[in-house]
Write a protein that binds this DNA or RNA. Structure first.
Lengths: 221, 221
DNA sequence: TAGGAAGCTACTCGCCTGTATAGCCGGAGA
DNA sequence: TCTCCGGCTATACAGGCGAGTAGCTTCCTA
């Protein structure tokens, strides 16, 4: 039940070892390696989970659950960045790396993590707009999806470029990333990029000409 | 020598088949599958390239070369997006998918592609600033690295979320992506995100307090 | 105290991978 | 015409993988 890290039953130890292995070295990590990390035999994976896919699913569910818990436990505030105070603990860093790897790999789990983060960001964004801190968008959801996709994508790419992610003191890696991107982020968010609004105006005119009047545009699949 | 697709020598056919396989299904595609796609035997890979790693290196070099060629051949203009008119041809789409997959996978090849695109974008950005189209940044290179990382990252994530990339008519996939992100991009680039400059001002003050005066800040590794 | 289930391990199987070796075949040069 | 040589194939090999089977220990319960 709890998220302690010591003498647990084999199933929990195996699951936690798999989460660490997956986060550290990717989802192709072999069952034998995972079992060795957990200090148990390889056959125990099959005994408890049946298949590797099922073990992976259990890891995904556990990570998502712990992520939710950590996020709601520390509702102090998240100024402008997702993953704000999360990587302070080793546990939080582990979760972030696992999630980023899931997104990078694609598949159902990555999609679920993305949708979860988009929903969070949408709440946050609406509140920020209501409080007058953020300019409104002509399509709030599209903007949030776009911003999350960009932010997470930048993290994914940045970490993919590095030689390897140190699972411990992941906070240092995160700090380095923010140190490199904080100034450009604030510049872009505060001052924009274009000196004139020609491009936007033209595109809005183009949109008005092709679809219904831009009151409440909605995605069309 | 040329990039035709029909009766080539086995080495070229093998290399081209590997590029398509890697782009379509990832770099774990087996040598036998690649050879089958090329219509040759699996042993020929070893005969011509020695190891799979060497085949991969040949593919990387070929893709980078073709990308350079395609980019310089069509120097008409690239309004605000990298990969502007590139995916119009099947060849161009193939290259983009291959590059995105390389970046997503990480490693030396992905780093090289990234640095190449950053250098391109830096040229373009300096020119745009000089022409008064784009506001100057306090650190041009940091901004460009950040923007490229975000743009490529968004593409990587977006394509990772999709079930599979259709190698043919990749232009349609690209169009769909731009259709979803064009409005948020133009809004953000034109109007920014924050209503006030508090965050930026505070961060600049913080920077001024920790380092040398912010005249020409430089990255510190 | 006997029984039985649960937790766990040792061993095995078939498959697929990259790599290695031996040899076939056709065309160019002497 | 003989010969050699490069392109190419067929087959083999060792290793790692996920999955399957059988059996051991331990502890709880009837």
């Amino acid at each position: 039940m709890s998220a302690a890290h010591d003498d647990l039953t084999g199933r929990a130890r195996l699951r936690d070892a798999a989460i660490e292995s997956f986060a550290a070295h990717g989802f192709d990590e072999s069952l034998r390696t995972i079992a060795a990390r957990a200090g148990v035999s390889a056959g125990l994976v099959r005994h408890h989970f049946g298949t590797k896919e099922a073990l992976r699913a259990a890891c995904d569910a556990t990570v998502l659950g712990r992520y939710r818990t950590l996020k709601t436990d520390s509702m102090d505030a998240a100024p402008q960045q997702l993953f704000a105070q999360l990587p302070s603990s080793r546990e939080g860093g582990l979760l972030i790396v696992y999630i980023l790897r899931s997104v990078r790999e694609g598949g159902a789990a990555g999609r679920e993590f993305m949708e979860h983060m988009i929903a969070e960001a949408l709440d946050f964004s609406r509140d920020a707009v209501a409080r007058g801190l953020v300019v409104p968008s002509r399509n709030e959801e599209a903007r949030v999806r776009f911003l999350v996709q960009q932010s997470i994508g930048a993290l994914v790419v940045s970490f993919a470029m590095g030689p390897e992610l140190p699972l411990d003191d992941f906070g240092a890696v995160m700090d380095r990333f923010y140190a490199q991107s904080m100034l450009p982020t604030l510049e872009l968010y505060t001052e924009g990029l274009f000196t004139r609004s020609d491009y936007l105006d033209e595109y809005l005119a183009y949109l008005a000409g092709t679809t219904n009047p831009p009151a409440g545009p909605r995605e069309k699949t």
